[in-house]
Simulated scan of single mutants.
Amino acid sequence: MRIRYMLLHAYGMGGTIRTVVNQANAMAALGHEVEIVSVVRRREEPQFRLHPEVMLTTLVDQRSGVQADSLGRRVWRRLRGKIVPYGEFAAGYFTERVEKAVIDYVTSVDEGVLITTRPALNLISVRRASKNVVRVAQEHMNLGTYPGPLREELIRHYGGFDAVAVLTASDQREYEQALPGTRIVRIPNAVHSVNQAPSRQENPIVVAAGRLVKQKGFDLLLPAFAQVVKEHPEWRLRVFGTGPKKAALRALIGEHGLSAHVTLMGRTNRLDEELARASIYALSSRFEGLPMVMIEAMTHALPIVAFDCPTGPRDVLTDGTDGVLVPSGDVDAFAAALNRLIADRDLRLRMGAAAVATSGEYAPANVMPLWENLFTELLRTKTGSGAQARR
């Protein structure tokens, strides 16, 4: 079958990009004709490996510099397109020029499966793509996280999709309640591999990873770790990722006297090795979709300490078995949970073994057939036969 995945920036490093690339690679390996469409391009090469049979297409090439009209809230309001609402977290990308490029592309597609991967792209697809095409919306964030005006647009239009795919059981219930009669399917993201080197629990290292943005809550993790080093000064925190909050986090490290204990590691292509060297993974997010780096940490037999934020951690973890959940935003409780695990290596080993077992649900061998079966069924329903699905 012909499968097209549309990403905002397929050359970036985000969790959605990684999981969609994993899906595309798996579908290509199964013999399907697969294309990834990157709305914009700001780097020379993709950050994640593509299967040789996956075609990568760019709609708006911005390598020579981002157009002035694609930056800034006031400029976006003046030149914005007609479909993408401002409440979309990536609204700043969608100038009139960028939105038109997406519209032109989706209206040119007249067969196969089109998967869009964020609200802006989903809204364009459901309103402008041909009904001859199987249209699938992927939602990587819970509905309640979105601002009210955006949430209203999603509820207004998502009923036009052949299916809306969500990541967790909580998301499925929420979307089913908001969109009665719409097919809502729960298919979790897959980790790239479950056969990973396990942590030996020998190094006094806590790892966290993600974009350096408010959502990820690193400004909460740092004061929690400041409490940890008072009891366990030999322990270190390594935070992997880049983003606009880097300077603010550096200042916070200095404010708490953590310069010798915390390192902002930047971007890495060797995260698996870093996870295997660590002993605990910390998830300090204010909200999540399905926290994939956390699940990847679990494949390395790392116990988790996580805020019980909406949604994601509780959909994966069993508190006290493969990790510790603490009240969302409670810095003192987060520090206490870290201290508890740091002080008890046997507990870390038991929780790490349980984490490996939990992560098996997210193995590619378990997840990818769900996608192939869904696409095949939707194509058969759309065309009245299995002819397209066999192509």
Rank of each mutant, 00 (worst) to 15 (best):
T383F: 08
I184E: 01
M141S: 15
A251G: 11
V228C: 06
G65N: 12
Q177D: 04
V98D: 01
G320R: 11
F307L: 15
V39G: 03
L50E: 12
H9E: 03
R74M: 14
G31V: 14
A276P: 10
M6E: 05
S38T: 11
H51F: 09
E44P: 01
L121R: 01
L7A: 01
V194H: 06
V136M: 02
K100P: 03
E231Y: 05
R186C: 14
G87A: 00
A363H: 07
K216E: 01
R73Q: 07
S64G: 14
D110G: 05
G257K: 10
R80F: 00
E35H: 07
E96Q: 13
L50Y: 14
D272K: 13
K246W: 04
A355W: 05
P46N: 09
S38N: 15
D308V: 13
N122C: 14
A190W: 08
A190F: 04
A248Y: 05
A208H: 06
R135M: 12
A10C: 00
I187Q: 11
V367R: 12
Q47C: 10
A357D: 10
P149I: 00
T57H: 08
A357N: 09
R314D: 07
L325E: 01
V37M: 07
H140S: 15
A365R: 15
I342L: 06
E255G: 07
A26M: 08
V109H: 05
R49A: 15
A387G: 06
T116L: 06
T95F: 01
P85S: 03
L237K: 00
T116S: 15
E274L: 04
D272P: 11
R128Q: 11
F334L: 06
A26R: 05
M351R: 05
E273K: 04
A278F: 00
A251V: 06
D69H: 10
R183E: 15
V126C: 12
R270H: 14
R391C: 10
E273G: 14
S125G: 14
I115N: 09
A363Q: 05
S70F: 09
R236M: 13
V229N: 03
L220G: 12
A355S: 15
L154K: 02
E377K: 13
L59V: 15
R211I: 01
L59G: 00
L252V: 13
K382F: 10
R186P: 02
R73C: 08
L264N: 04
Y281I: 07
E361N: 10
V40I: 15
A165D: 07
G81V: 01
V136A: 09
L8D: 02
V60Y: 04
K246C: 08
P310M: 07
L379A: 11
T145N: 06
L222N: 07
R390W: 15
T57Q: 11
T381H: 11
N373K: 13
S108C: 10
V136R: 02
L222Y: 12
P204K: 08
P223L: 00
F287P: 00
P313K: 06
L212S: 10
E234D: 14
H261M: 10
A224L: 08
P204D: 03
A68E: 12
F48E: 06
F48Q: 04
Q201T: 08
R151I: 00
L167D: 04
E33V: 07
A26I: 08
R42H: 03
I253R: 00
G81Q: 03
R97I: 03
M6Q: 06
V356P: 04
R238Y: 02
L275A: 02
